[in-house]
Amino acid sequence: MKVAIIDYGSGNLRSAQKAFERAAREAGIDAVCDVTDKPEQVLAADRIVLPGVGAYADCRAGLDGVPGMVGALQEAVVEKARPFLGICVGMQLMAGRGLEKQVTDGLGWVPGDVVEMTPDNEDLKIPQIGWNTLDIRKPHPLLDGIETGPEGLHAYFVHSYHLRCEDEAQCIATTDYGGPVTAMVGRDNLVGTQFHPEKSQRLGLALITNFLRWNA
């Protein structure tokens, strides 16, 4: 199996790559996980990962700055329906628009805006940084076998904005931070996590393994 982790000048690519390699190794999955900025490698991949750390507009500009990458993504993910995982800002880029600092178009795969979090408790700090649990809105193969809910495993979040889905059926999981905050979105062969599976120890490695096994 070929996994393409997209390099567009953003994100903790090495951590993501190492986490995918470890998950594959432990699950006995024969996977080559490459960090790449080559559109042809994305088109040839069986699984596509879009990581992302940074400001929304900067990340979008970075993605547009790789010649042919947005087109390759559209073709591989939308037309050829290859399993796709967006992480953090990579997940936010799946949205229609990002409203961080300015209005920026996303990829438009999951309709909705990426908006600032507005916790109902003013003592809560922004960004949300740290470990929180997941509340499932809709069962998803990537969460198979993972303990969720208040007594479940924790995921690592670092963010000030979240994706508010227009279609609530596309919100797979939320986390509680002064009200529900979108933690995971998806439809068809596309899925995105606001948290960082590559930094979420047991929960993260289990989710990545599920992604590698997912026949979307």
């Binding site: 750390v53 940074g54 400001a55 900067d58 800002v89 960004p127 940084i129 670092v158 963010h159 000030s160």
Partner: peptide, 9 residues
């Protein structure tokens, strides 16, 4: 630095 890498970083 925050403009480049995001405040969270």
């Amino acid at each position: 630095a925050a403009d480049k890498f995001g405040n969270q970083c």
